[in-house]
Every structure is written in C-alpha cells, then in structure tokens.
C-alpha cells in the first residue's frame, strides 16, 4: 500500500513541478523578450484642499517657509523667562459688587485670591511650556523619520496633496532625494527668452560633479541643433555652480559616471 501511495505521490509531485517550472519559464522568457509597462501604484490617500487662493500669484515666491527649529527653541526659552517673572500684584482688581457687600471679608479673600491666581498663572504657563516641549519632541522624532519633508506653508486653492507614497529602499530614497534637489536647483537658473523658448528644442548634457558640487566636465549627449540654445544650457550650468553637495553614497558615481541632464525633458 505504502509503495503504491509513494509512487502516486512521486508522480503527482513530478507533474506538479514540471507544470510550475513550465509556467515560471514562460513568464521569465516573456518578461525578458517582451518587457511590459511598469504598473503605476497611486498614493493611498488623496486630499484636495478646496478654497479660492488667498495669496496673489505674483507673491507666491515670497511666502516664508515654516519656522526653523532654532526659533522654536528660542521661543521656549523666552516663555520660560516670562514664567519666572510673574508679578505678585494681581492685574484684575476685585469686583465692585463683592467689595460693597462684604468689605471685611473681601480683603482677606483678595489676598487669598491673589495667591490662587498666581498659582493658576504658574500652572497655565507650566502646562503651556510642557505642551511646547512635547510638541518639540514629537517634531524632532518626525523630522528624524522623514528628513526630506517639506515645511512650506500650504496655500489655499485647489491643491492636491501628494499622499503617502511608500518606498522601500532607504538608499534609493537618498538618491531620489538628491536628484530632486539638484533638479530644482538647476531649474532656478534655467531661463530662455521667448523666441528660443517657443522653438521646442531639446538637448541632453552629461556632467560629472565633484564632492564639493563643482562641475568636473560636461559633454553634450545630444545637441539641440541650435547653437544659441546649447549656449544657454552651458550658461545655466555655469550660473548654477556650485551645485548642491552630493550625499556620501553618490559622490563616487557622480564623479566618475556623472548625471545626464535633459533640457527641458
């Protein structure tokens, strides 16, 4: 009995393995020979802020970013100083009604009330300080977890938040973060007069960057065919020096292989 069952099991196993192997082989060959389009995974949560904008378009560049951490610490220190300076004389005089009804009692009461008020004030300031410290700690923690978070103030007006896109590799994230930073930096200096802008020219240039952010070499991978456009690109890169310093993980690859910039795409 056992021998037959073993034999059946063996045969079933072999056919199963052959079938699985065949499927895996077919999929492997297909993905190598006919690569498909990457699947777009949208962020999980999308929040639309709906309100007419309150800041003028021409003033958008001047909007200040959120207070840096140093300012918050200063404010904490100031608040602590004020807490120590509490004036023993109460700010509010006793209510006139109480004075008229109970002249003798109110004197004692006002003295006790003063002390109570002092204590209440101290408590309030202490609790406010405690809240600020707690928020600070939270902010520190959250800043450590997401070093690239943008602190800019959100302005009303049909804004779509980026959602929480999950990414896996920390190294990949550091790289992607740097490429975003360097793109934004170079884009600041990338300007063309209208007559060049509307000609829809494109060019690609490979540059090598040293750890200090200086350009070691530049070479056109694809010229635009228009010397004025190419000149404008070289001028932009020159104005953009020194480029943002690359993170440690990228210094060697940026100095040896470099980056290819596409103007505009």
């Amino acid at each position: 009995m056992d021998a037959i069952r073993e034999d059946q099991l063996g045969r079933a196993l072999t056919w199963s393995l052959i079938g699985h192997g065949a499927i895996a082989f077919v999929i492997l060959v297909k993905s190598l020979v006919f690569p498909g389009n990457p699947v777009f995974i949208a962020p999980a949560l999308r929040v639309d802020l709906v309100g007419l904008p309150d800041i003028l378009k021409k003033d958008l560049a001047k909007v200040p970013k959120a207070l840096p951490k140093e300012d918050l610490k200063e404010k904490l220190a100031e608040a602590a100083k004020e807490a120590k300076k509490i004036n023993p004389v109460p700010e509010d005089a006793a209510k006139p009604d109480e004075m008229v009804l109970n002249p003798k009692k109110t004197e004692k009461k006002t003295a006790e009330d003063d002390k109570k008020k002092e204590k209440e004030k101290e408590k309030k300031i202490d609790s406010a300080l405690a809240k600020i410290r707690a928020l600070e700690r939270l902010k520190d923690k959250s800043d450590e977890a997401r070093p690239e978070e943008d602190d800019a103030i959100v302005i009303k007006g049909n804004q779509v938040s980026k959602g929480t896109a999950l990414s896996g590799d920390a190294k990949e994230k550091a790289e992607a973060g740097y490429y975003d930073v360097i793109r934004d930096h170079v884009a600041e200096y990338w300007a063309l007069p209208e007559w060049l802008r509307r000609q829809k020219l494109t060019a690609q240039i490979q540059i090598r960057i040293d750890p200090a952010g200086r350009i070691l070499s530049s070479k056109f991978v694809k010229t635009s065919g228009n010397p004025q456009f190419d000149e404008a690109i070289l001028g932009t890169l020159k104005d953009a020096e020194p480029l943002p310093r690359p993170p440690k993980e990228l210094t060697s690859s940026l100095a040896d292989d470099g980056i290819v910039f596409g103007f505009p795409l």
Partner: peptide, 28 residues
C-alpha cells in the same frame, strides 16, 4: 530555475541617472 531568475535580475544593466530639468522660465 529560481537561481537563474535571481541571477538574471542582478545582471540588469545599471542606467546612468537622468534628470529632466523641465520647462525654462521666461526671461526678457
């Protein structure tokens, strides 16, 4: 088979990072 596929992924060629700078700002 498994080992083969794993190897195949590792051998995918490394691409040079490409940054698209985007549309130029207008100047006079």
């Amino acid at each position: 088979l498994f080992a083969f596929t794993a190897l195949a992924e590792d051998e995918a060629p490394k691409e040079q990072p490409y940054v698209a700078v985007g549309q130029a700002k207008s100047r006079k």
